[in-house]
């Protein structure tokens, strides 16, 4: 992957990781009210875990190492009018905390923006290098 414009691909890999993280957060928030029957697993929130990559001692950016999932137990609460309620009137809501998700979203967004800034710096540097000898 160590091409001519290597720095650009490092920044691009970072953008990719935080894009996926933002997608995971969006998915979690979109499913915050996904109610299920008590005998089914609840919607599990997703966390992205990043890992750094190096090729022959040269930095090569970041990748998504894996996703981690929240608890399938969810939060059981009383809602007898819900169509999925069981005999006792209980349903299962996902254990997703909106404050946590918003915090993760901010972190991912800031990291994404930083990678965009890094990309622009690299592009400027390469543009400048192309001027050598003009």
């Amino acid at each position: 992957m160590a091409g001519t414009f290597h720095s650009l691909s490092i920044a691009a890999s970072g953008m990719d990781v935080y894009q996926k993280w933002l997608e995971a957060v969006a998915d979690n928030v979109a499913n915050i009210n996904t109610i299920r029957a008590t005998d089914q697993p609840a919607y599990q929130e997703r966390f992205i875990v990043a890992a750094s990559v190096e090729e022959n001692g040269r930095p090569a950016g970041a990748v998504v190492a894996r996703a981690e999932f929240g608890s399938p137990d969810g939060i059981i609460h009383y809602d007898p009018l819900h169509p999925l309620a069981d005999a006792e009137g209980m349903v299962k809501a996902p254990d997703v905390n909106l404050s946590d998700q918003m915090t993760h979203m901010l972190a991912a967004q800031r990291a994404y923006q930083a990678n965009v800034a890094a990309f622009e710096r690299a592009r400027d540097a390469y543009m400048r290098a192309l001027e050598i000898g003009r």
Partner: peptide, 27 residues
């Protein structure tokens, strides 16, 4: 010096790309 600055730039970019990587130490 230009080569050195490019290596330095790559290190900074690696750090920025890994700002949320658990256990990562800045280069």
């Amino acid at each position: 010096a230009l080569r050195g600055l490019e290596a330095q730039q790559e290190a900074h970019q690696q750090n920025i790309a890994n700002v949320e990587t658990p256990g990562y130490l800045a280069r």
